[in-house]
Amino acid sequence: MSAGQTIIIKRPKIVKGGGHHGGAWKVAYADFVTAMMAFFLLMWLLNATSEEQRKGLADYFSPSIPIAAVSGGGAGALDGEEVTRAPALSTASPTEGINDNLAGMPDDAMVAAMQAALIGEETELSDHISVRMSPEGLVIELTDRDSRPLFASGRADPSPILMKLTAAVAQALEEVSNTIKIDGHTDSRRYGNGLQGYSNWELSSDRANAARRMITQAGLPETRITEVSGRAATMPFVDDPLDARNRRISITLLRSGG
């Protein structure tokens, strides 16, 4: 090494400690942030909704909604009050919660509750009752069967099974203030009893009026009924135009203002 030449000494860098620890902490932190976001969102929702809305949401996911035939007997099946939670089977009437404006329960829960109230312990009625929601309101279909018709063939004389059905309807609706309408329907067979000018239109109208009389005689105030119509075969219940179920009485519990 010559005189005046610079000497460079390289020393290795020694790192003390544990070194790089990986990214596990990032995952844990992300989980924590997500949980906090969910918590604050829940708190915001609880603050933004009413007690009735919260009960309605809870009831939507509740398994306590009645879906089987249970007794609908006794007064107060439809109490007309705004109750948004469907009752447990063992403690209350199955239709508690169907209120005057049909807005207190999810549609499927309301349909199930009404079906249960109408059938009650009368299992023979189940083949003749169908309940559904429509834009107008809750529709109760009382359908015919070949083995047990609702009316005498080609006439508006009610059978014993229809008397039971209309009595069940009157009892289920007696304490709700909604108005109702009644429609009579036939199948597509041409009316052929020889009466001049008498057709399925007249027959369906006469049957609708017969149902109206039975419902009011069973206790439903006549002022609740706003419309009675005959539809003939224009609104079939099933696709087969000759199916017995197309011969029916439709009772619509109208929404408020409907």
Rank of each mutant, 00 (worst) to 15 (best):
G192W: 01
T166H: 06
S130I: 06
M133L: 04
R224T: 02
D127F: 05
R207T: 03
E227V: 05
M163Y: 03
D240K: 07
A167I: 00
S90W: 12
P12R: 11
H185K: 09
G73F: 05
G23R: 10
S256W: 02
R155F: 05
R212N: 07
R231A: 11
P160R: 09
A28R: 14
Y191L: 14
A103Q: 10
L203A: 03
R189W: 08
A208C: 04
T6A: 13
M163C: 10
P241E: 07
A210F: 01
G4D: 11
A211T: 10
L45Y: 10
A48Q: 12
T84R: 06
G74H: 06
A208N: 02
R132V: 09
I7Q: 13
I119R: 05
M105G: 00
W44K: 09
L142M: 09
F151L: 06
L254F: 07
P158F: 04
I215R: 00
Y191D: 07
D59A: 15
E222K: 12
L142W: 02
A68E: 15
A117G: 10
R247G: 06
R255E: 09
M214I: 10
I140A: 03
E82T: 10
P149Q: 08
R190F: 10
N246Q: 08
Y29C: 09
A58T: 07
A232M: 09
N193Y: 04
M214N: 02
L41A: 15
E96N: 11
A168R: 15
G137M: 06
E96T: 15
S147C: 01
Q196F: 12
I140W: 01
W44Q: 08
P12C: 00
A77L: 11
G104N: 06
M214S: 04
R231M: 15
S93P: 00
A88L: 13
E51Q: 13
L78M: 15
S204I: 05
P106T: 06
A35I: 05
E141R: 11
Y60F: 15
R212C: 04
G80K: 09
A233C: 11
A167W: 01
I65K: 12
A117E: 08
W25P: 00
S93Y: 03
E52T: 10
M114W: 06
M36N: 06
G257Q: 06
T216S: 13
L102I: 02
A88H: 10
D31V: 13
L150D: 02
T84Q: 08
D239K: 12
T143C: 11
M214L: 15
A77D: 09
Q171C: 00
F151M: 05
S147M: 01
S229I: 03
F39P: 00
D100Y: 09
F151C: 00
F151D: 04
F39C: 07
P149K: 08
E174L: 14
R11I: 12
I14A: 04
I65W: 08
V83R: 12
K10I: 07
P135A: 12
E121S: 15
I7S: 10
S159I: 03
A24T: 12
A113Y: 05
L125C: 06
A38C: 12
L254D: 04
D239N: 15
K10R: 12
M110L: 13
A172I: 02
G4E: 12
L102V: 02
I8V: 13
